[in-house]
Amino acid sequence: MPDSIALDSTRLQRLQQIPLWDFALAFYAKPGVEAACLTLQDEAGLDVCEVLFHCWLYSCGLEAVSTAVSAVRKERLHWQARVTDVLRALRRDLTSSAASNEAVAALRKTIKQAELMAERENLQRWQIWALEVKIDEKCVTNIVEKPSNVAEWLEKKLNHGEKAFQFTGSSNTPSASLQALQTLVRQLDPHQGAR
């Protein structure tokens, strides 16, 4: 295995020192990130946990190996569909009733906490997968060359290497999805950590 491809121990150590959940909380709190993630979720159908996972890797100078991530993506999407999305739908359905009923408001708050716990579990499973040592397959690798267009790089990672949503709208203006990706990229520190 060539040295440029060998997983850099400094990058891997950094990944181990910054739990994905901690990264996600800090990153999500940055200006515009929450709105960007929700745009990618609601308008592009992307999984916010996977978005945060790829941002976490990128912040350490790493990326998921595309062929390896496809199987775990199916597992994580299954979790999202069967657990998180169900809780999110319940929480959203109770929004109007909660405004006028304290008991429903308390129930909605409990469901919101359960939804957050489901997201945390999903992120922990992404992290475990990334840090697993497999003899026959690598999960993550160094980003050998910093991408010239990080938004496009992230979009490809999230859409299995294919473009699934448009970068420009009908009048050649950036789509909401592209604007959301660009917001995330602006908040990632490209000079942070080993590259």
Rank of each mutant, 00 (worst) to 15 (best):
M1Q: 04
M1A: 07
M1T: 03
S4W: 03
A6Q: 13
Q16Y: 04
Q16V: 14
P19C: 15
L20I: 15
W21G: 06
F27A: 09
F27I: 15
Y28W: 15
A29I: 06
A29C: 11
K30A: 14
K30S: 14
G32R: 09
G32S: 14
V33E: 04
A36Y: 07
C37Q: 10
C37R: 10
C37L: 12
L38M: 09
T39N: 08
L40H: 00
D42C: 07
D47Q: 03
V51M: 02
L52F: 06
L52I: 09
H54S: 04
W56P: 00
Y58F: 15
S59C: 12
S59M: 08
S59D: 11
G61R: 01
E63C: 03
A64H: 07
V65H: 05
V65S: 04
V65Q: 06
S66T: 12
A68G: 11
A68M: 09
V69Y: 01
S70L: 13
R73Q: 05
K74R: 13
L77H: 08
A81R: 11
T84P: 02
R88A: 06
R91V: 10
R92Q: 12
L94V: 11
L94H: 10
T95I: 03
S96E: 14
S96V: 11
S96M: 14
S96D: 13
S97F: 15
A98I: 11
S100E: 11
V104K: 07
V104L: 10
A105F: 01
R108V: 13
T110H: 07
Q113I: 08
A114I: 09
A118Y: 01
E119S: 09
E119N: 08
E119D: 11
E121M: 13
R125T: 01
Q127Y: 03
I128S: 00
L131Q: 08
L131T: 08
E132P: 05
V133T: 13
I135L: 01
I135S: 02
D136T: 12
K138S: 12
T141N: 01
N142P: 00
P147A: 00
S148G: 05
S148D: 08
N149D: 14
W153D: 00
W153Q: 01
E155V: 03
K156Q: 09
K157D: 02
N159G: 03
H160C: 04
E162S: 12
K163F: 14
A164E: 14
A164S: 15
A164F: 14
Q166Y: 12
F167S: 07
T168Q: 04
G169V: 11
S170L: 13
N172H: 01
T173I: 10
P174N: 14
S175R: 01
S177K: 02
S177F: 01
L178Y: 03
A180I: 01
L181T: 02
L184T: 09
V185I: 05
V185M: 01
L188G: 15
P190Q: 07
G193C: 03
A194S: 03
A194Q: 04
A194M: 08
R195H: 10
